[in-house]
Design a binder for these strands. Structure first.
Lengths: 199, 199, 199, 199
DNA sequence: CGCTAAACGAGACGGTACGTCCAGTCTTTGC
DNA sequence: GCAAAGACTGGACGTACCGTCTCGTTTAGCG
């Protein structure tokens, strides 16, 4: 039995919640993650610090919610399926890099990744609430391709998703090279046809 | 012309430098990156804080040097080349995941990545001093394979490296799944033969 | 208009305030003024440094408040007035030197003077809150003596106070000689009758 | 037997010594005592820190020497003796307040007093090398007046000096009022004739 | 006159304290 | 009766100096 009363979510102020999430996203975009502080968010949101601590266990969790609330809003329910797997994947990956090139989105996304890298719980949360659903959509599209004979039957879809998105995400995070449409096209083509020579 | 006199490197204490780098690596392994402090490193190294600030501009730069000093020591000069590309790549990637599974290495590596993600200058340093040389070794091995007809002639080696290592690094950083030998074997096979069905 | 919000005095913790003042006086008595540090006071008072910086602009101001709080507590409302001016003044000055001989008081007092000597604002504060009121009491007693014909009518009381207390304070601060009851008696007698021979 | 070789005064660099003393006086006049640092003096004098530490045990001792070297240069060998005691004393005291009103002198003098107040050894040094000789001159003049019948025969000259200079020094140090020629005239007159009414 | 030892400038070193910022908790007050 | 406001303890930040300790480089005096 806990001595500390759990906050009663029914009484939660929706105004405050929105203000906090908005302030968090705005601030991380303005000052960058390393200079982001709870105090700064509270001030910008016109909210007491306690109101933040009452509802979020960590800066990462707050950032995560903020990210979900804004980035996740216009999320598609399914990936395009024109029948041409390569073309569809290129569309999706090009959209992804376009998003990542937007400085606001980029900064928030990097901030979230920084938190995830060092916080197991947050990583789990991320997997189940953001990465998981997205991954499911991708696997659905790949499964459709598999049925259409455009993907080898013995391909592990989980790994296939990694093959397509891993290189791109990695290049973005580590800035190992420019993130262009040409690059993602190459990745898609290479992933589909393989590095080894075709007979 | 700078108004601030640069420290005179010839008078630098090698003892202090080693103690600081060692302490940094040790501490990041013990307490993790978010709880790592310059003050803590200085104390553990038996060194004044100023001695750290005199020689490193940021915690990230220090971490980077520490990482270079220790992780880079036993670095191979070339990747194995037995003639069997797939087997060689699997050896390398298995060794990589083994390293990443070592908690000490894992924590230091994550710490460095966190710094790199938010610090352009450090990222550039990382590219030129750590990632670049490693990438060159990988490309050399792939080039050899290309000459041997085990790799398609039109493959962009830069992207090929991304295809092989990106998925693994990504899974490690984001913990999207277990990092096993089986997984890297799958990645290598899939990258070489492609996702599309072979005729 | 200030950009920095002034602290809200109504929310101030009386507990912390008392602990800080007490610690300041105790520490200056123990380690002496030159080794007195804000950090030391904060630690001894079980208080965060910020709580000191929030309410006092300088070490001198804190010391001054501490001094006021403790030394000023048992302050007399008026100087003795038995009708015998010389005797009354000797009583007061003897009490003063007794206080100054108390090492605790002596150290705190010296510390305050050091701050005052180099800080105009603090000096002004000192004049209005400590020296001024005391001086008024002294002048009141002298005025009474003047009415009783024991003091020349054309004597400037301000200067008269200096004549009586200046030599004693000076000898104390500069240690130009022993501070004894005999000495203050001499000062009083000499100030009243003058150095020139009486006819 | 000491392990530490005493510095060999015969090899001492007169250039460095002068540069240090000059820099000390200049700096204390510019930045004030509380912001005066050994490092700053060394830099301004174009001298290594060690050269200061080699020859002076403390900042106070250095300041004291600097003060002696500059303030003591034009020191008179005797006080004026025109036969008119009051006039002579007024001349001396007016000259004193003029000096104290010079900001450069004022700051250096205050700095020295601060050191003296908290350092017994320095205070003793001050008494024997600066205050003592000056006091002797003053007593000599008073003794002359005593012989001329302008001073009561039973007056303790030590205390008499305090009566004349104590009030002025005190007003200067504590800024209890303006330091004017009128003020010192009043002090001299009052000290000579006494506060009590003359019959 | 050339050797040598000390003093010199420079500045890195282990430290202490500075004054600021923020984390996370606790308290008061206004709506 | 909740939440804004914000004071509280705690502790890391990056800076400034402390006093000590080498470094090479003059420089003085002796042999």
């Amino acid at each position: 039995m806990s001595t500390k009363a759990a906050p009663d979510a029914t009484r939660r102020s929706e105004t405050a919640r929105r203000a906090i999430l908005t302030a968090a996203i705005d601030l991380v975009g303005e000052v960058g993650y390393p200079k982001l502080s709870i105090e700064g968010i509270a001030h910008a949101a016109g909210v007491g610090k306690q109101t933040i601590y009452r509802w979020w266990p960590s800066k990462g969790a707050l950032l995560f919610d903020a990210f979900l609330a804004f980035a996740g809003e216009g999320e598609a329910a399914a990936l395009p399926d024109t029948g041409d797997l390569a073309a569809d994947l290129k569309v999706v990956l090009r959209a992804t890099v376009d998003e990542l090139e937007n400085p606001r989105y980029d900064r928030a996304m990097r901030a979230m990744h920084v938190e995830i890298v060092n916080d197991h719980l947050l990583a789990a949360e991320y997997l189940s609430r953001l990465d998981g659903p997205m991954r499911e959509l991708k696997k659905t599209r790949l499964r459709s391709a598999q049925r259409a004979g455009q993907l080898a039957e013995d391909v592990d879809l989980e790994v296939a998703v990694d093959m397509l998105f891993g290189p791109v995400l990695n290049r973005w995070l580590h800035r190992t090279g420019p993130l262009t449409h040409e690059y993602v096209d190459q990745v898609v083509d290479m992933a589909l046809s393989g590095l080894a020579p075709r007979p």
